[in-house]
């Protein structure tokens, strides 16, 4: 009995409740006319789409720079890489990797600039990050309109100028990661392996000296300072890492989704990712790869299942509204748990 109790405490009630909730959704699914196999595969596909984005939150959480509400900044860098790749006509795996390679320098620059702002506002990072993220989306909107792209698949038809809102990459690099694996449209092995690779890199990094220094800066800045660590430099590194991962994350998302979404699409992208990692058990200053995996699975699972189940139960399409309620409800739930250092507003 005691062992079960302590196990539950480590897991945390929120996670258990959500896991049970998700489980019940899978159980109910067949009874309301949903195919269990399809449901599971949908969940896995969404896991593959979003996992890297959630992973990108890790470095900044460890370094004490807070939950990366400025994720849209990294996403914008990824979008730039993606459109350049399409402009160059790259397809397949080449297109996918091309997008990443183009995005990385932008992510590096954006991340660096972002870190300079964050380093000057220690204690209030999350709020400012949110608005930096919003502003960057707005400025990129202007960019999408005036940058000189020529590819017919991307610009407005009938001789308009500026990029379209949604660009289909069906003929370019959609599904590039999963193509070489079996059951490409049921279980996204490629994406899962790719995520696993990045997650492994993360795990490895945090065992290195730099990684431990990053953890120290977040957990106990005074101690880190005393051991000669340059706090600002470490924070900058973590912000750049997070931004680069976010850029990679959105490219993975797009190759799964099949579309590049510009303009206002990245606006709210930080929130689901943050919801996921919080659900996975992370706090404002501690997040492990397990948190990322469990959280993404639970969050995407609920996001996929609940609207479908309820839609079939009530025979109405309330997906959008339900998604808003569920994802934000989960973030609220996670935010109102005790624990986690007071990390400013």
């Amino acid at each position: 009995m005691e062992k079960i109790k302590s196990y539950i405490e480590t897991m945390g009630w929120p996670r258990i409740i959500i896991a049970l909730f998700l489980l019940s959704m899978y159980v109910i699914a067949p009874f309301v006319g949903l195919n269990l196999g399809t449901s599971l595969s949908d969940t896995l596909i969404r896991f593959g789409m979003n996992a890297v984005l959630v992973l990108s939150l890790m470095p900044m959480i460890y370094s004490g720079t807070g939950l990366n509400f400025g994720l849209p900044l990294g996403v914008e860098a990824g979008l730039i890489g993606a459109v350049i790749s399409v402009e160059m006509g790259l397809t397949g795996v080449l297109g996918f990797w091309g997008a990443i390679i183009m995005a990385v320098p932008f992510a590096f620059i954006f991340g660096w600039g972002y870190s300079q702002i964050l380093n000057r506002v220690k204690g209030g990072e999350m709020m400012i990050a949110t608005y930096v993220g919003f502003s960057s989306v707005a400025i990129m909107c202007i960019m999408w309109l005036i940058l000189p792209f020529k590819s017919q698949d991307m610009i407005w038809a009938y001789g308009g100028s500026g990029l379209r809102t949604t660009i289909s990459i069906e003929n370019y690099w959609q599904g590039a990661l999963n193509k070489i694996f079996p059951m490409a449209d049921k279980i996204p092995f490629g994406e899962i392996i790719f995520f696993g690779f990045l997650a492994f890199l993360m795990w490895g990094f945090f065992k290195t000296k730099s990684g431990l220094a990053m953890k120290a800066v977040g957990a106990n800045p005074k101690f880190a300072l005393a051991t000669g660590v340059n706090i600002d430099k470490v924070r900058t590194k973590s912000v750049i890492m997070s931004t680069m991962l976010a850029a990679i994350g959105i490219i993975v998302y797009q190759q799964s989704f099949g579309f590049i979404q510009l303009y206002l699409a990245p606006f709210y992208m930080a929130f689901p990712a943050i919801a996921a990692i919080l659900i996975g058990g992370a706090s404002v200053n501690k997040a492990t790869v397990i948190n990322v995996m469990v959280g993404t699975f639970l969050f995407q699972g609920i996001l996929t299942m609940t609207p479908s189940v309820i839609n079939n139960l009530v025979k109405t399409d309330m997906s959008e509204t339900l998604r808003i309620i569920i994802s934000n409800g989960m973030i609220l739930y996670a935010l109102t748990r005790k624990g986690g250092k007071k990390n400013g507003k």
């Binding site: 929130f271 998604r323 309620i325 934000n328 973030i331 109102t336 990390n343």
Partner: peptide, 22 residues
């Protein structure tokens, strides 16, 4: 959510917006 009131109130706004839509 003491200590995180501002960000919590943003999310709370989104959440209640969903209920309002409902």
């Amino acid at each position: 959510a003491k200590g995180r009131e501002m960000i919590t109130s943003i999310i709370m706004g989104f959440f209640i917006n969903g209920v309002y839509q409902l």
